[in-house]
Design a protein around this nucleic acid. Structure first.
Lengths: 180, 180
DNA sequence: ATCACAACCGAACAGAGTGTTCGGTACTAT
DNA sequence: ATAGTACCGAACACTCTGTTCGGTTGTGAT
């Protein structure tokens, strides 16, 4: 990718998350992002169609990082590593999430958090749907899957505002309270 | 309250929820609500300062209904009824939620859902914080409280899209999966 | 039935934000 | 060196917002 495009993209992301720390998503105008990023008006629209798309792009970028290992493992059909147990996998994801903490906190701080959480839950459905096979109960499978996904995503949301805990702590909390 | 005010208020709420079924919150303009409610522009602004305030007013109205008994009980210092067990209480709230199902589904269908969920969680914190005393664990109390609140609010969100289940079913699912 | 009051109407207005266009400039990759 | 790409920013048409105000109609109390 052209060095200029990368630079512009980065400037926009940083301006955007910076603004999210100060004010809510809906109160941020495209013009403010443009000014903060110090780019031309038409340049912004050459990269992103709307503010919403910018948010989605940012979420995608974050999750590509967080779930990068899982995705890679899916492509290489290496069954030995696929059998990693769920506890290790969850802890691993928590480590990655911690890396993007600053971005995530900004996004979660207002309405835009809903978009982030939606993205997040979509990834988690894949993560937990396999795990669910092992358990049986008189509760609909679909309910349990949604339950696990929400447990974990909300655990992460909580964690983002409680920095004192480590990834291992959070993993332990999660498995203590979740119905595994 | 003046009959006209009641009528207008009702017309706005109905127009708003009707629109929410068709398109997302942020894509609904005040003018569309005004047209759908068939009222004058200035009339809308005489009732609600902004679209956001309308959403909050609608949420407040819903929760005043859903939690009406709890609130009443709080005022009358009747300790005999205060000791109602949590299962009955939860089931009771689910019944009330079912009454407002149409409204709630509309609100939850897009970004406005976040506002609804936020309101909802605030009420639930009160409901569950007492219940938590009874349990002990090596997990922070604050985490457990948030966990219960999210479990329940997300259970309700799930329920709204799975009409085939009764309030009793949902109550059972919730207590099966929650760490009680 | 009357009457003071409150609610509603809707046109008009200023202001803010959006998304596009276009001619010109500057950078990049090869 | 050069062709292609990205950026700039002014200008434009458009939509939406929130307010104002003079006039109309409905309401509740007496």
């Amino acid at each position: 990718m052209d060095r200029r495009r990368k630079k512009t993209r980065k400037a926009v992301f940083e301006a955007f998350t910076g603004l999210l720390e100060k004010k809510s998503y809906s109160n941020i105008s495209v013009q403010e992002i443009i000014d903060a990023a110090d780019i031309g008006r038409s340049t912004f629209y050459a990269h992103f169609e709307t503010k919403d798309e910018l948010l989605r792009a940012l979420c995608t970028e974050i999750f590509e990082h967080v779930f990068s290992d899982d995705l890679r493992r899916e492509n290489t059909h290496d069954f030995s590593t696929q059998k990693k147990d769920i506890v290790a996998e969850v802890t691993h994801i928590l480590y990655h999430l911690n890396d993007s903490r600053t971005y995530i906190k900004s996004i979660l701080s207002c309405e835009s958090g809903e978009v982030f959480m939606k993205f997040f839950r979509e990834y988690l459905v894949q993560l937990f749907s396999g795990e669910l096979e092992k358990h049986s109960s008189d509760v609909p499978r679909e309910y349990m899957l949604n339950h696990l996904v929400c447990d974990f995503s909300e655990t992460v949301r909580w964690w983002m505002n409680h920095e004192q805990y480590s990834a291992e702590d959070i993993s332990r909390f999660f498995f203590s309270a979740a119905p595994f």
